[in-house]
């Protein structure tokens, strides 16, 4: 398992408490950047701007990635473009919503 896979795996432990779906299956993670010295940048979004779980979810992402062995520093970059849409969800995420 390479570093990116380990980080992605760790991110699956962060759940949106309203939807009970993890941030990866929800399609909130737009990118994972890893530098040679172990600095990680997570580019992510939320389902809606002003989401009341904003701080909780971004902090959760930081905590869980910091816990990955090779990681030294974590920067969470929250973006609103491109806006989140349902097609960004994984098949597991869609199933969890009971929609597909």
């Amino acid at each position: 398992m390479n570093s990116e896979e380990k980080i992605l795996d760790a991110l699956k432990s962060v759940y949106d408490p309203e939807l009970n779906i993890n941030v990866v299956d929800l399609g909130l993670i737009y990118g994972i950047g890893i530098s040679d010295n172990g600095n990680v940048q997570i580019t992510m979004t939320l389902t809606t701007p002003g989401c009341p779980l904003h701080n909780s979810i971004t902090s959760g992402v930081r905590y869980c990635v910091e816990a990955v062995e090779e990681v030294r520093n974590v920067d969470v970059n929250l973006v609103w473009q491109p806006a989140w849409s349902p097609d960004k969800m994984t098949e597991d995420g869609k199933r969890a919503l009971g929609r597909w």
Partner: peptide
């Protein structure tokens, strides 16, 4: 439930298993 969850569990998310709002 959201208010209470935020202040009781928001610091735990990503570190430990936390309940969902439901």
């Amino acid at each position: 439930p959201f208010l209470w969850w935020t202040f009781k569990y928001s610091k735990e998310i990503g570190k430990a298993k936390v309940p969902v709002l439901k």
